[in-house]
Design a binder for these strands. Structure first.
Lengths: 200, 200
DNA sequence: TGTTAATTTAACTAAACAGTCAACTAAACA
DNA sequence: TGTTTAGTTGACTGTTTAGTTAAATTAACA
């Protein structure tokens, strides 16, 4: 009953995109509403605050992209290929965004986590959640790689975390240098880090 | 001639500290002035804009801390010890700040670079400058380590950059988890990454 | 088709924002 | 000691901010 609307979804999409391209602090509720073609009253009909919208937008983005990650890190794919594909997708994704916007945007979760972790507890938690999710993909991959005799036994949890930190740092470097090419060779760097034979 | 003042220095210090603890976007010129006990008119007597103050504050912080870095990375210190000391100082620094403020703050340059690189070109450049400076310290260290036969020949520039990315990512992880303990074992992780023998 | 309830709208608030300015003050120095 | 000038002050502007509200609209459904 009552009327239907895609305003909520539009707000989530636009918010994610705008905050990624700029920053949480520099994007206003009015900006988001204007781009989403939604009036401010509707905004506050759907979301209690700007911060709540941001959290919802990031969760929505994760839910939309989860199938993609599941595919990349599928147990059906050879372990080291998963990592290489993941790195390639990161590079290509950043490059594509750079071509569209003129700017390397880095990791959206890292950016918002870095900006707001000391300020907004809900956003901090969402950032941490993403961190843990990605580390799990990597940890599983490392375990599988070990089972297949591709890498030595090691602390897989710690190593997965270190890999993800390296990747986040690389994305930050790309953003700060506004140069996606620093990500070109990411795959081999990560593979070497886990002691895998790097393909020529 | 004319009167003297430490208002400028106070503004630089307070701005750095506040932006580090919160974020660029959430700290207002009024906040900075209040904490520095300086009137807004004086602020704009010394700095043309908030963004210019931020750039100056970050440069000032680097100039003040440069002697410390020069000591840590001194050629008189054995190469691998330099890296270990650097990692220890990072851990202790973050821990100390956490005890004071209740929050892990991460790397101030990475935070501001991550927040503003797509927005403010001057801040982007300052961030990149810091990135390059730190990478130079690390690259020199790697070259010296190789000269002393401690590590294999490799692409030292690329490896230095990768190490710094790992470190930045680790600091981000600590901030997002609000847990400085993830940095405890940073030294060995980095040493293992360059193929050095990790001390027991 | 009439009722219901979900959504939309525009006009509103009150606070916070970055930045301005002309008049004032006081330290340095000749 | 008087002049110079670097620095201070507080009151100001116009804009932008997040968030509110009450009345209007419209799609779904019985």
């Amino acid at each position: 009953m009552g009327r239907t609307s895609d305003a909520k979804e539009k707000l989530l999409q636009v918010a994610f995109e705008l905050i990624w391209q700029q920053s949480y602090g520099s994007v206003s509720v009015d900006d988001i509403c204007e781009r989403a073609k939604v009036k401010k009253g509707s905004f506050y009909y759907f979301f209690p605050s700007k911060s709540d919208l941001a959290v919802a937008a990031y969760e929505e983005h994760w839910q939309c992209n989860r199938p993609k990650y599941d595919r990349v890190f599928s147990p059906l794919v050879p372990p080291l290929e998963r990592i290489d594909t993941y790195c390639k997708l990161l590079y290509e994704g950043q490059k594509a965004k750079q071509e569209k916007t003129g700017r390397v945007l880095g990791c959206p979760f890292a950016s918002v986590g870095s900006e707001l972790s000391t300020q907004d507890e809900k956003i901090r938690q969402k950032s941490q959640e993403m961190f843990d999710r990605m580390c799990k993909y990597l940890e599983n991959t490392l375990r599988d790689a070990h089972k297949e005799g591709l890498i030595e036994k090691q602390d897989f949890s710690a190593k997965a975390s270190a890999i993800f930190c390296l990747v986040m740092g690389m994305l930050l470097q790309a953003k700060v240098k506004n140069d996606s090419e620093v990500l070109r060779n990411l795959g081999p760097i990560v593979l070497q880090m886990i002691g895998a034979t790097v393909p020529a």
